[in-house]
C-alpha cells in the first residue's frame, strides 16, 4: 500500500503528485478542509510524505509547519511509509480485560515485531491504539479498515494467513 514516494518510477510519482494536487483543489474552498485533504492524500499515497504535504501547504495556503503539526497529531495519519497492512490493536480497558495482551503477544510472535514497528519485508505494521468502538466483541483489532473481534491468540495465524 505505502511505497515510499522516492521509490516510485518518475512517471508514477508525477502522476501520484498530480492526484494529490487534484485532491487539494477539490477541497480548497471548503472551510477547515485540512483533515479531509490529508485523509485523501493518505488514500492516494498510503502515507503523508513531505513532498505531498508541500502541495497541501501550497494549495491550502497554510504553512508547511501547520500541515505537519496537524498530520502528526492524529493517529490515523502516517508521515512515513508503513507496511502494506497496518494492524491496529485496541489496548483500551474493555479489550485489555478480555485478553488483548495475549493477542498482542500472538501478533508479536507471528510478525516478529513490536508495536510501532514494521516488518522488514514491508508487509505489516503493528500499532497499539485506543478504543476502536467495537467493545461488544472485545478483544479486537483492525487490519486497515477491516475489524476482527472476539479474538483469541489462536485466531491470529489464520487471520494473518488470509492476507497472503
Amino acid at each position: 500500500m505505502a511505497v515510499a514516494l522516492d521509490k516510485l518510477s518518475p512517471d508514477l510519482r508525477e502522476q501520484r503528485l498530480r492526484e494529490v494536487e487534484a485532491a487539494v483543489a477539490r477541497h480548497r474552498d471548503k472551510p477547515g478542509a485540512l483533515l479531509a485533504v490529508l485523509k485523501e492524500v493518505q488514500g492516494i499515497l498510503g502515507y503523508l510524505p513531505e513532498e505531498a504535504l508541500k502541495k497541501v501547504s501550497q494549495g491550502l495556503e497554510l504553512p508547511l509547519s501547520q500541515v505537519y503539526g496537524v498530520a502528526t497529531f492524529y493517529t490515523l495519519f502516517n508521515t512515513r511509509p508503513r507496511g502494506q497492512h497496518i494492524i491496529r490493536l485496541c489496548e483500551s480497558a474493555p479489550c485489555h480485560v478480555q485478553g488483548a495482551r495475549e493477542v498482542l503477544e500472538a501478533l508479536k510472535r507471528e510478525l516478529g515485531i513490536g508495536p510501532g514497528e514494521d516488518t522488514p519485508d514491508g508487509k505489516w505494521s503493528l500499532e497499539l491504539v485506543s478504543c476502536i468502538g467495537v467493545c461488544g466483541v472485545a478483544p479486537a483489532i483492525m487490519i486497515d479498515d477491516q475489524v476482527y473481534g472476539n479474538l483469541t491468540p489462536d485466531c491470529i495465524p489464520g487471520i494473518l494467513a488470509s492476507y497472503r
Binding site: 504553512p63 508547511l64 509547519s65 501547520q66 505537519y68 503539526g69 502528526t72 497529531f73
Partner: peptide, 10 residues
C-alpha cells in the same frame, strides 16, 4: 508570519 515553529506530535 514565517511559520517555521509549530507543535508537532501529541
Amino acid at each position: 508570519g514565517v511559520g517555521v515553529l509549530f507543535p508537532i506530535n501529541r
